[in-house]
Amino acid sequence: MSVGGAQFAQQVVNGLAVGSVYALIALGYTMVYGIIELINFAHGEIYMIGAYIGTLAVAGLLALGVPLLPALGAALLAAAALTSLYGAATERLAYRPLRGSSRLAPLISALGMSIFFQQFVLLSQGAKDKIFPVEISSGGFSAGAVKVSYIQTAILAVAACLMVALDQFVRRTRMGRAMRCMAQDPVMASLVGVPVHGVVSLTFLIGSAMAAVAGFLIALYYGKVNYLVGYIAGLKAFVAAVLGGIGNIPGAMLGGLLLGVVESLAAGYIGGEYKDVVAFAILVVVLIVRPAGLLGARLPEKV
């Protein structure tokens, strides 16, 4: 393989790893949008909180003398469980009371929650980077000049498992059916006995747990977290959700991976400082050219 080709392939691999994290966050956006047509601005902050709780849990467990791998696993589960509570509580306190009011109200409420969470973590954990307590060895697999580190492999594997699990859940279980039902027609769903509030809470629980896993994986990958990471990651994941077609679960996965790869290539070939501009440019282009996204169906606006 030529040098240029190897560099390209390496960027693609890096992009896939970051992109699968975007995809995990994007799933939360897309599920919530699919069911209650709300852009949950606070979702990026939920991801950040997940990263913090995971990092703190690993540090706590290692201090108790738990071996590394069980500690990582337990911290992942703890982060997912606690963070999902944050998501559900946000829905209960900031969104549910506003259902049936104007479109602007929940958006502003969501923005308020996002600022609140950011400041909450800033005040309780400080402005400095939180360093992940263990440094995972940089070893990995390599194919020619292309290296795939263990963490990248883990990210891809965990993300793939979760996506398959979510897909099966939505397709095959009673609650999954209730979710699809709500997405189609919330009023009709409530008339036929779907527990509307319960389904919305469950959606927030699942979406937040996914975001927490994403946050944990990113903390592991970069070795640190900061209270500001949620803002930009949340935006990127939203772009991913729109790119795939918001409200569409496979779309969010595809959009996340695609965005990760495009961004990684842009960083490699154009320059790192304009990386964020690329994501927004994609957003604007998609919204103008194909607002329904890559996999979304073209639906007339509900009146």
Partner: peptide, 9 residues
């Protein structure tokens, strides 16, 4: 800012 966020909600 914490109060601003809460106030918006």
């Amino acid at each position: 800012l914490l109060a601003f966020g809460a106030a918006m909600v």
